[in-house]
Every structure is written in structure tokens, then in C-alpha cells.
Design a protein around this nucleic acid. Structure first.
Lengths: 247, 247
DNA sequence: CGGGGGGTTTGATCCATGTCAACCGGAAAA
DNA sequence: TTTTCCGGTTGACATGGATCAAACCCCCCG
């Protein structure tokens, strides 16, 4: 049963979806803001949208107007080349921003697809710029978030350019583990939201190679894999694989 | 003969190195600013620094305080992994910014090395943020520049993840050509500032593979290669290689 | 003018990953 | 319960690029 407008008017307490009571505020844009500043940020985020599994949040070429903060759920972004090849450029989870790539050309330069039922906050970009001209903390934090995206991308370039298959998968699992931990989930046990093919696309590998690497990790007792369910058994072992360069 | 301080005091016209008379202003940060706004940007860029070939502009781990705009010259950025592997993450030329990756953690996350004698403008970041709170155009343009870097990185991820050796090199040459063109140089003839090994590192290939790909292009009449001197003979041909996926 | 050395080219061989194909297994439909 | 189907696993084989090695070339320096 959903609350009627009348219920609101009768001032029955309603859980307002707002930055100030969002448990992701320490990971997301509001980081470091005062109560009053957060309220002003709230003001500009007046649309929250559900995106069901498999649906696009935006597509390449669409006019860029807003960035999105993930309230809950899981997304992938991918780029499509004219000749049909495509690549997953990232997986995004709660508290992360989507759409930063659209600022440069005023249109989105990748597709964003929900990998599970998700909810996003819609942040009109020009209003965010306006507010960040007024709130130094917000401005600086936003710059940090963009910069972090650049650093992340450099990490992926490193992975794609210098690592072999098992190193890539180890790095990928450790990265997921670390991000789940930061969100208060188990660092050792989680469900993958993406297929082997999507993992492979992200890591520059074919799905068979990803599958074989998982099997190998399993044999060596590093992880327990059951379909999409992953239990990481030996984090130091994975770290060693990641950086145990044979040459 | 250099001008003495006395000459300046006698108000003999001195070419001031300033954004307003920099021929890169349309590519660089000042893009879209009024004369008055550009003067304010000039105010904050009071150090211009020479970096000789082979010297570091900054190193991984150094405290981040400024970003740098390249006035002239050519740089590479690279990341070093603990196990000794490294990768070139980009090549930067006049009008481009260096150091954006340092914002996120307040320390530089890569090395920037001059590949030829260069000159950079030193832009204290906190003052840039301050000014961009006051000048909307500057703020927006800066955001676009950061976003463009993200889009560029996605392009490189695509290249590393889905392209084969010759496609990567074709993409690389076309990209250089296009950037030289934008700076008023010949789009068809230029000198590479980097070694085959650096190209390989950037493209996720070994130097021998890069060399072989060059030879192949030469055989096929796509380019004329003589050491570091490159003449592009067939741009459509290169474009076709880049996107002529065999599968 | 004659080394010397870094960068480059080219050849021969090897190997990690791609490719192709068969099979498996769990979830949803019938 | 059985069927279907999609995603995943596993095997056999092919291949692009890595590796190792030698020779070459250009530029700098004595």
C-alpha cells in the first residue's frame, strides 16, 4: 500500500528520499557538506527514477543534461564502435555517479544499462554547476569525483595493457570486493550482477578465458565459484596473482 | 640578446607570455573567455616553467597543488606498478592540460616526462577553483576538459580491449594527425617524439610489434616511415584498417 | 674518419588467448 | 515432472603477438 497525497498533507511522517538521510551520502556527492548545504543539494535533486534490470538509463548520442547518482542497484556502461564491436567501460554501484562523460560534448558518449533493478537520483548538471559555484566544498568534491574517474580509467588501461588474463580477473575481483566492503557488504561473498561475457568485455578477454580463469582460481582454492555466486577465500593469494609478474 | 630589466622599465614593448596573446588560447583553458576574464586567469598563472627533454614535470606521489597547461613541447604520462611494469597512459601536446589525475587524492598519480624541450604554465589549482566559482564560462569549460579526458580514456580502453595491433597503430597515427592538424601543423607529415617502445607501451604492444606494423603500413603504401619521421599517405586506408574488423 | 651505443628492423620460435564446438546445469516455462 | 533455453564450462586446435636473437642504422663523440 502506498501513501496517498492526503497522508502527506496530514503530516504523517514520510521517509523522504533525500541526500540528508541517504546512507550513501558519505560516498556520494554530499560528502563533506553541512546540513544546510545538503538541503540545497537536495533541492536540485527532485527526480528519482527507477530503472529496471536490462533497461537503459541513457544511450550514446542522447543530449546530456544531467548526471545520475546511483541510489541502489548496479549498472554497466558500454561503448559501441561503428563496426559492431563493443566494450564495457565500467560497472557502477550505489553511491557512484553516471554520465560524467557526457559533459564534454553535451551528449552521452556511452550507454548505461541497469544490471539489476535500480534507483537513481537525477541531477541537472547546470544546476549542479550553479550550486558548486556557491558551495566550495561541493565544487571541490565534484572535481575529486571526476578526477577519481580518470585515475580509475588509468588503472583499467594498465590492466588491459600489461596484465595477463588471470591477473586481470584477480584485479577485478579484488576491486569488487573492496567496493562492496566500502558499502558495508561482505568483502568475501557476493553475487556477480554481470555475465562472463560482460566481465570479459570489460577485461578485454573472451568469456571462455574468463570462465577458465575462474575454474583455475577455484582449483587453487582462491575462490569458491558457483555460477554468479562468489566467495573469496584467499585475498592475499589473489593479490599475489595480480602482481606476481613472471618476467 | 635578451632584454634587460632596464629595457622593460623603459617600456620598450615586451612580448608578455599571457593567455591573451597565446596562440593556444582557443584550445586551452581560456577558451570562450572575454578579455577581462582572460586577464583574471592570467593573474593566477604567474609561473611559466621550462622542462627540458627527459626531465620530469612531476612524479607519482608528489603533492598535488597545480595543474599544468602545455605552452609548447610534448609530454608523456606513465604509471608504474609495484612489480616494475609500467605503462604510458598518454601523450600530451601544446594546449593540453597535465595533472588532472592528481585532484582526487591530492597527490599525483602518474609521472609526467617531457619528450622534447617544453614550456608549461603553472596553474595553482585552488586559485583556479576560486576563479571558476566566479566565472561560469571558465567553470563549465574546465568541466568539459575533465570530461573530455574521461572520454579519451574510454577510447583507449576500447583500443586496448578490442583492437588488434595494426588497428591500434592506425588509430594512434590518425589521432596524432588530427591533433597536429588542430594546432596548425601538417596533418600528413610529422616527427614522432616518442620511441617505438613508448608507443608500444601506450598501445599495449611490444616495440617489435609496433615496428612490424609500421613496416607493414609502409609496404602497403599507407605511410612513409623513416625513423621518427612519418608521412601519412593514405588516411582513408588507415581508417579502413582501424575499423575493418575481420570477424 | 672510425668507433660506440641507443633505437630500430627483421627473422625464428613459442605460448597465451582466441576460436570453434560440444556439453552441462539451473531456472523458468509448460 | 519434463522441456527449453541461456549462460557457463571444458576440450581441441589455430593464431597473433611475445620472446629471443641478430643485424642494422643513425647520430654523437673521440
Amino acid at each position: 500500500m502506498s501513501l496517498s497525497p492526503v497522508a502527506k498533507e496530514m503530516s504523517i511522517p514520510v521517509i523522504k528520499t533525500a541526500c540528508s538521510n541517504c546512507n550513501l551520502r558519505e560516498l556520494c556527492l554530499p560528502f563533506g557538506l553541512s546540513e544546510e548545504e545538503m538541503a540545497r543539494l537536495d533541492d536540485l535533486i527532485n527526480v528519482r527514477k527507477r530503472v529496471r534490470r536490462g533497461e537503459h538509463l541513457y544511450r550514446t548520442g542522447q543530449t546530456f543534461e544531467s548526471i545520475f547518482a546511483i541510489r541502489s542497484g548496479f549498472f554497466k556502461t558500454d561503448v559501441l564502435l561503428e563496426d559492431g564491436r563493443d566494450q564495457v567501460t565500467g560497472f557502477q554501484m550505489a553511491g557512484e555517479l553516471l554520465g560524467l562523460d557526457g559533459i564534454s560534448s553535451e551528449q552521452h558518449s556511452c550507454n548505461a544499462v541497469a544490471l539489476e533493478d535500480s534507483e537513481v537520483c537525477h541531477i541537472p548538471f547546470s544546476r549542479l554547476e550553479q550550486l558548486s559555484r556557491e558551495i566550495e566544498t561541493l565544487q571541490h568534491h565534484f572535481h575529486k569525483v571526476m578526477s577519481r574517474e580518470i585515475v580509475r580509467d588509468h588503472g583499467v588501461m594498465m590492466l588491459l595493457g600489461t596484465m595477463r588474463a588471470e591477473e586481470r580477473l584477480a584485479a577485478f575481483l579484488l576491486n569488487l570486493s573492496q567496493r562492496f566492503t566500502a558499502r558495508g557488504f561482505s568483502h568475501a561473498e557476493f553475487n556477480l550482477r554481470m555475465t562472463r561475457e560482460e566481465i570479459g568485455s570489460y577485461l578485454g578477454l573472451k568469456l571462455e578465458t574468463v570462465s577458465r580463469a575462474f575454474s583455475r582460481f577455484q582449483e587453487e582454492g582462491l575462490v569458491a565459484v558457483q555460477q554468479k555466486h562468489i566467495r573469496i577465500l584467499d585475498i592475499p593469494g589473489l593479490k599475489q596473482i595480480m602482481s606476481h609478474h613472471s618476467h
